[in-house]
Structure formats: C-alpha cells, structure tokens
Amino acid sequence: MRVVMFGYQTWGHRTLQALLDSGHDVVLAVTHPQSDHAYEKIWSDSVAELAEAHGVPVVLRNRPDDELLLTLKEVEPDLIVANNWRTWIPPEIFTLPRHGILNVHDSLLPAYAGFSPLIWALINGEKEVGVTAHMMNAELDAGDIVVQRAVPVGPADTATDLFHRTVDLIAPIVAEALDLIASGRTDWTPQDRTKASFFHKRSIEDSNIDWNWPAEDIERLVRAQSDPYPNAFTHYRGERVRILKASVSRGVYGGTPGRVFIREGDGIVIVAGAEARRGRSHGLVIERVRTEDGTDLPAGEVFRTMGGYLSRHP
C-alpha cells in the first residue's frame, strides 16, 4: 500500500518507524512545526528528521489546508496513518485514501478521547491504560476499532512509566492493523459511545494542587505529573513548591485542607479533602519537593515548622 503518515512528537516518530519497517511504501510524512508548549517539548523525537533520513518527503503544517489537500491527491495514498496529530482533519482528507485514515490513540477508546489520556487516566485511578488503532470518522477519536491493547497500572506507576509501556505498543499495533487492512478486512468493532469521554489539553494550571481533593487523588496527581512532565505544585509562604514524591498518610487527620500539620515517617502531612473537618480523612505525606530555583529537597527542609497553609495562589 501507498501510505501517508500524519503525526508529531515521539508517538508520531514511533508510528513512522513502524510504517518504514512494514514494507509498505511511505510516500509522505506530514508533521507539525516545533512548539514551545510545555507538553510538546517533551517526548519530542522528530518525525521530520526520521522521514528525511529515509528519503520520505516532509510537509510541515499546524493544520490541513488546500495546498496539503492537493499534495495528498498527487501522491495518491491508499491509507493515511495518524498518531498525535493535534488538529482537526477534514472529511475531504480522511475520505481521500481508499482505505481511509487509521488513527493511533494512547487510550482504551471510547474512554479518554482527546488529549493527555495517560495523565488523566492515572489521576482518575484507572486500573489499565493502552493504545487503540481505529478508523477515523468525522468525530474525534470515535471511529471503529481495528486493534486495541491494554497494560495494567500499578500502585506506584507514574505517567512516565505508562508512557514507556504504551509507546512500546505502537509498533506491533501498527503492524497488525496494516496487515488486517491490507488483507481486505473491514469488519471493525464499533465504539460504544455511551462509554465515551473526551478530555482537553493539559496546561500548567491543571497541575496546581487543590487541597480539597482527597489525599488519594492528590497522590495520583503527583505521580501523573512526574518528570519530565510539569510537576504538581502548590504555594507556601508566597513561593511555588513542586511536589516530586508523596504518599497517603497512615493516620487520619482533621482540620482545614492545606494545613501543614505533622511529621509522619519521612515526610510532612498536609491536611486534605473536602470533608477533612470531620476528622475522617487521610492526609498527604509530602516527602520530596523542588523549589523555584530547581533544587530538590526532602520536604522537612522546606516545611521546617508545623503550621501555616499550602494554597493554590501565592
């Protein structure tokens, strides 16, 4: 088959490599220009550089336009394969190839369509995550499923751990999906749209800790914002403090959410949860932090005295 690839960052890079290894004819790679967005500067292996190294023509676009449509008509693809393409692809493009567009998405669709699915899934305590290859239609991440694979989420897993596990699924999933499509199969599995969920892009504000959340949820947020992602953060005495390691307290603590309360184990307990005043909630034990100057410290070296509050604003 003649294949065009749409993609960006490491997800697109892995997908393009899988296409190059497949034996199919990769006739064009379409990717985004480099971005200064915090979440687009990490996992940033270059699709353009990989394509150029293999003699594949490259088109840089933030979104499809008429010129790109003409180029696609000229190269006459049998299939477009997309992964981490960040903007809408119009019907005149996804209906152009005779096999349509195969989109690769790092969630177990229909859940967690949209952006940053691994981070959102970890925050929400999902027991597994994965990758789905599906045929694109007019609704984002909603087309029929061709191949889907899942991996478990462990109790100490970070978003970084889940990234590495799921990105390793891309090559075998793309290879299997290409074989199925090339064989003439079209009996794909429709998504159950009653189970669909759609998430927005994450921004820095989404990492700002809300101490009204239960400690269990905040602990997952910390793991979901592991390096190299922008870390979960809070404010203490007018300064931003990033939380690198935390756990749920053994003890149950009452009071006002955000209160710097007591030492426990290797960390400092912060009162957490909207119902904390009732004295039935666990706190968050902060164990390691990063200060604004980039210094990593045990929490006890920052929260030297008990009392005072952590808050969402300086």
Rank of each mutant, 00 (worst) to 15 (best):
V151L: 06
L180P: 01
N83M: 12
A215Y: 09
I268S: 04
L122M: 08
P91S: 14
P214V: 03
E67R: 12
V75R: 11
Q148R: 15
G55W: 07
P90Y: 05
E49C: 03
V252K: 09
R278E: 15
A232T: 04
A215C: 10
I286Y: 03
L20T: 07
Y236M: 00
R98K: 15
T234Q: 08
E264R: 09
D206F: 06
P97Q: 04
T87P: 04
S44Y: 06
G273K: 01
H164S: 12
A82T: 12
D217Q: 15
E205P: 02
E76V: 11
H99C: 11
Q34T: 14
T186K: 10
N212P: 00
D296T: 13
Q191S: 07
P155C: 03
E287G: 04
D65Q: 11
I262F: 11
R304Q: 13
P117K: 02
S183A: 14
W213E: 15
G307K: 10
N84Q: 15
S22K: 07
I101A: 01
D192H: 11
A82I: 02
A150E: 03
I262W: 11
D168F: 08
K73F: 09
V289M: 01
D192P: 07
W11E: 12
G114P: 06
A113S: 12
R149M: 09
D21S: 14
P314V: 07
G265T: 09
R2M: 06
I204E: 11
S207T: 15
T95D: 08
G130Q: 08
D78G: 10
I170H: 07
G55H: 11
E74S: 15
N62I: 13
K245L: 12
A224C: 05
V151D: 05
T305A: 12
S311V: 09
V27N: 01
G12V: 01
G100L: 08
F199H: 13
L310F: 01
R237M: 10
F233S: 01
